Amino acid sequence: MSQRHTHSVLVVDDAASNRYALSRALRSEGFQTVEAAAGAQALELAEYVSAVVLDVHLPDVHGFEVCRLLRGDPKTATVPVIHVSAVYVKDEDRKAGELAGADAYLVSPVDTSELAVLIDRLVSERAPG
C-alpha cells in the first residue's frame, strides 16, 4: 500500500460522472489516475499505466474487445485489467470478461477500498522479477 503513489490506474468509462467518481476515489486511496472516455483512447494510454479499470459498455469499442486487444499487444499484455459494469452483470458476462483476458470482473458500484487492494495484488503479481 505504501507504494500506491508510484502506480497509475487508467479509469475507462464513457460516463463522465462515473469516471470522475472512481478516479477521485482511487486517488484518495493513494493511486495516480489517468482517464479515458472510450476504448480507442484506452488502447492508446494503457501501456503507460500500472493497471486498467475498464467499463464494459463503451461507445466505440466494446470493453471485452478492448481487453482482448490489450492482451494481444506485447506492450500491454501483462497490464492488469479489471472490468467494471453496472449493465453487464450476468454470469455469462463475467465469463466473457474472463475469456477476453480480464484479471477480475466487478459489478458497479464497487467498494473502492476493495478495488484498491485488488489493484495492489494484481500489480504486485505482474511486477517483473
Rank of each mutant, 00 (worst) to 15 (best):
A102V: 03
A42R: 02
E35L: 11
D111F: 01
A21G: 00
A86S: 14
S28M: 10
A38R: 13
D14F: 07
A25D: 05
L54V: 09
E35W: 07
P80A: 02
P109G: 10
S23G: 15
G63N: 03
A25I: 09
R4F: 14
A51V: 13
D73C: 04
R126M: 07
A42P: 01
L99V: 08
H62A: 13
S50C: 09
N18F: 11
G129W: 09
A38C: 09
K75C: 07
R71F: 14
A77F: 06
P80R: 02
H83S: 12
P109V: 11
R126T: 14
R68A: 10
A37Q: 08
E35T: 15
L106H: 00
S113Y: 01
V9K: 07
R19C: 13
E47N: 05
L118Q: 11
I82V: 15
P74H: 07
S2L: 15
S124N: 02
V117R: 04
I119P: 02
L58R: 06
E98D: 04
L69T: 11
R68G: 07
G39C: 08
V53S: 03
H62F: 04
V49F: 06
A40D: 06
I82K: 05
V66H: 00
P109W: 06
P74Q: 09
P109M: 12
H57S: 12
A37H: 03
G97R: 05
V52F: 08
V117I: 14
H83F: 13
F31M: 10
F31N: 03
P80V: 13
E125A: 07
